[in-house]
């Protein structure tokens, strides 16, 4: 066997598998997005099987874009969730990375504690947060508010100084199961899970920071903040870009958290909307899917360019 053939043969299974994985379902989605295809329709049974005769052109796209009331809401909500999570994880991740980037007692344990949330399975993360922590009655959220209210009413009942507290209101616990607030719940839990990811990458990157430059800056009298802004932050520019884009891609397809926290309460993102359409209107689900692919690709192109550049270093 020649020097070229064997390496090529070794790659073949991986390439073929991924090619099939990418092409087969995606071309089916593309096809379905151009035909009328529903799972149940008693009056038009011919629409219930995928058939080229039911060609609809861009009809499904028009339906999704202009008539289905949830599409724009889902896009907006997807971007809101992704944007908030990225912002929060980068800020927290930077803070943690800078904090841990010095020697102190128990640093190893602190690292381990910080990284742990990342390994919790998403389903458990969502169930844990929405029930045991954020529940307005039985979760820690509810218990804490109840505790505060009890303290206030005890103070109000004190003889003498009680009247001083008379006007303090009773606090209502915030429910995280409504449409808007459950988006906040999703943001909280995903931020909790992904901050370790950002922190870990920044920590790794900080270790390669030029210390001599930093010492020079200190000798020149640069403060901690100036050092961070003019040395550390520029050094972290590429890791930040990578963290932002990887998270954008992962969180645009966020699903388990939405499914668990928001099922049926109106909060939805694109993958969840696709799941809803897919329970009957396959044409619309596929059209939405194709648009989600386009959205993800816009981010992916930038990310792949950065990664491709660093590949051969």
């Amino acid at each position: 066997m020649s020097n070229r053939t064997l390496p090529r043969l070794l790659q073949t299974p991986a390439v073929v598998l991924l090619l099939m994985w990418m092409l087969v379902p995606l071309s089916m989605t593309l096809f379905f997005s151009f035909i009328r295809y529903v799972l149940n329709n008693l009056r038009r049974p011919e629409w219930t099987s995928p058939d080229i005769a039911n060609w609809r052109g861009f009809g499904n796209y028009e339906y999704v874009l202009y008539q289905a009331k949830d599409f724009w809401f889902a896009v907006q909500n997807s971007l809101f969730i992704v944007g908030s999570v990225i912002f929060l994880t980068v800020v927290f991740g930077l803070a943690i990375a800078v904090l841990v980037n010095r020697t102190f007692p128990g640093r190893g344990i602190v690292r381990v504690l910080f990284i742990s949330p990342f390994f919790v399975m998403p389903a458990v993360n969502a169930v844990l947060w929405i029930n045991m922590i954020l529940d307005p009655v039985l979760g820690l959220n509810g218990l804490a508010i109840e505790g505060i209210n009890n303290t206030i009413s005890t103070l109000q009942n004190l003889p003498g100084i009680g009247s001083f507290f008379a006007l303090w209101p009773e606090i209502e616990p915030l429910s995280f199961r409504a449409t808007q607030t459950s988006a906040y719940a999703v943001i909280i839990m995903v931020t909790w899970q992904w901050t370790p990811f950002a922190a870990l990458i920044f920590m790794t990157s900080l270790q390669s920071e030029d210390q001599q430059q930093k010492e020079a800056a200190i000798l020149d009298g640069a403060g901690v903040w100036a050092q961070f802004m003019h040395l550390t932050l520029p050094h972290l520019a590429r890791p930040i870009a990578i963290v932002v884009m990887i998270q954008a891609i992962f969180h645009l397809s966020l699903y388990a958290e939405i499914e668990i926290v928001s099922r049926g309460n109106g909060n939805k993102n694109l993958p969840y909307l696709i799941g809803e359409f897919a329970s009957n209107n396959i044409g619309a689900a596929s059209a939405t899917g194709i648009m989600a692919v386009i959205l993800a690709n816009i981010v992916a192109i930038f990310l792949l360019r950065i990664i491709g550049k660093s590949l051969m270093d």
Binding site: I249, I282, G289, V293, L295, A296
Partner: peptide, 10 residues
């Protein structure tokens, strides 16, 4: 980087 949901039904 393909969103999984896009190919859910297929």
């Amino acid at each position: 980087m393909l969103p999984a949901a896009a190919v859910l039904y297929p």
